[in-house]
């Protein structure tokens, strides 16, 4: 994206909102407000996308392998978020770098979630919610919530990067109806 010419592809890919960079609290808060207030004229749809955004963006801040340490400590995760607008649905996607070891359990969790009926998923959420915080297997309600809010399966993909690490993509559709 060095020149003006390379920027134009962004108009032809249905992108409503996209962001690449550090996922710190300030930017997350502003992006959340943009989603809530401007994505569509249907505030119910906006709220769904907003809820999904909060859960998934937080994962990038916490777990992305690529980190910005200018703010000190462990730093904040770097990644990409894209909301694309189609005729009947919005597609919300996030992507960030990760390692295979870290991400395999998450992908298994997605498979597990996708195999469940709505009733089962609610049961699973109740179960997870009652697990003490910090316990292994607990604290992972976020993805269940995403699936329940979207009412659609969680798609994911893992792509090997040139540096030997992996790029992990999560994607869900939110129907407009």
């Amino acid at each position: 994206m060095e020149s003006a010419k390379e920027t134009k592809h962004r108009t032809t890919d249905n992108i409503a909102i996209s962001y690449t960079g550090v996922f710190d609290n300030e930017i997350l808060s502003v992006l959340a407000k943009e989603i809530e207030g401007t994505l569509s004229s249907d505030d119910k749809v906006n709220k769904k996308v907003f809820k999904i955004f909060i859960e998934l963006a937080q994962n990038i801040s916490l777990y992305s392998l690529e980190r910005d340490v200018t703010s000190g400590g462990d730093g904040m995760g770097v990644g990409t978020m894209i909301i694309r607008n189609f005729d009947t649905y919005y597609e919300f996607s996030t992507g960030n770098k990760t390692t295979k070891e870290n991400i395999i359990p998450v992908m298994e969790k997605c498979d597990n979630i996708n195999s469940m009926s709505r009733e089962k998923l609610r049961e699973y959420r109740r179960l997870q919610r009652n697990m003490p915080a910090g316990q292994k297997g607990g604290g992972n309600i976020g993805l269940i919530q995403v699936a329940l809010t979207a009412s659609n399966p969680i798609e994911y993909a893992l792509v090997k990067c040139e540096d030997g690490n992996y790029f992990y993509i999560v994607s869900v559709r939110i129907n407009k109806d």
Partner: peptide, 8 residues
């Protein structure tokens, strides 16, 4: 790219 944003 350090920061990229598209949207409102």
């Amino acid at each position: 790219i350090l920061v990229s944003y598209k949207g409102p």
